[in-house]
């Protein structure tokens, strides 16, 4: 009996609310999926249709055979991965410095990172375009990797600084007593414990890069075409390819979801490992 009430309680306080939130989060996505398998001519048949009568995979085959969506996925994957690695490398070191050292100009620099983030970046396009042209990196992966990594730095530096701050400093001291220098103390002791935070920041940078449209549309052209550009191409002046667009949206979310599914296993085990060491 007792076990039984426990199950009911778990359902009411845990499973049901989680289910509702998951439904809310995925509802529009599921609806997108339904749209993507609805034949174009049934789309506006009248009123709302919850399930298509003649489901079709045509939009998905068009996506890969005629639109070359695989190429776009590849470009996005390259850009987002490198932006993530590059952005992390810079922001982890920067935030470790902010978190663990007192030095002249620390606060102004920290605040500076915040203030430059407040300006609407779409207004920076023209000068940025000029700079990228001067460096001859416009329309290359490098342009986007640099842009995304950099625009994520203020954010991830602040994020990581808080995560590092939450780790007791005694651990650093202990590491030094155990024979680590300042660099190895960071790499061997602090970073492993901060792994959940690093993973969260990594996800942030990756997703931001994955979805970014404005910079991609201006800084790249023929050779680099990320997913948002491909999707935007389906929104014409007088016509929206709704079926293709929703199919593209459904497909583009999948790699990130899978990636996150694996990262978070790492994330949990990373945490436990850190806790053991701590």
């Amino acid at each position: 009996m007792k076990k039984h009430t426990g199950v009911i309680r778990a359902i009411i306080t845990l499973h049901l609310p989680v289910l509702l939130i998951v439904l809310f989060a995925t509802g529009p996505y599921i609806w997108s999926f339904i749209s993507s398998i609805t034949p174009e001519k049934d789309m506006y048949k009248g009123g709302v249709s919850y399930f298509p009568e003649n489901p079709t995979t045509r939009n998905y085959s068009r996506l890969f055979s005629k639109i070359n969506f695989a190429e776009n996925l590849k470009d996005s994957l390259i850009v987002a991965t490198f932006a993530m690695l590059f952005g992390l490398a810079m922001s982890v070191t920067a935030s470790y410095s902010f978190s663990r050292f007192q030095f002249k100009g620390r606060k102004p620099l920290l605040i500076q990172f915040l203030v430059i983030n407040m300006f609407p970046i779409v207004l920076l396009l023209v000068p940025l375009f000029i700079i990228m042209s001067r460096f001859h990196i416009r329309d290359t992966y490098i342009a986007l990797v640099f842009a995304y990594a950099t625009f994520s730095i203020p954010f991830s530096t602040w994020m990581m600084t808080s995560f590092f701050n939450a780790i007791p400093r005694e651990l650093d001291e202990q590491a030094k007593i155990d024979g680590c220098n300042r660099f190895t103390a960071m790499v061997r002791v602090v970073i492993p414990i901060a792994l959940p935070g690093i993973a969260a920041t990594a996800i942030y940078i990756f997703i931001t890069a994955w979805n970014e449209f404005v910079f991609a549309s201006v800084l790249t052209g023929k050779s680099v075409r990320t997913i948002p550009i491909a999707l935007q191409n389906m929104v014409g002046q007088y016509q929206i390819e709704w079926g293709l667009l929703t199919a593209g949206g459904v497909v583009s979310a999948i790699p990130v979801i899978i990636l996150f599914f694996f990262i978070q296993k790492q994330l949990i085990s990373g945490m436990t490992a850190g806790a053991v060491k701590g």
Binding site: A25, T26, W210, L245, T246, V256, I257
Partner: peptide, 17 residues
């Protein structure tokens, strides 16, 4: 993983949807 979906959906799709 599933609750990440809104965040990973490109803005153009989110907005149009």
């Amino acid at each position: 993983s599933l609750i990440l979906i809104p965040w990973v959906t490109p803005s153009v799709i989110t907005a149009l949807m």
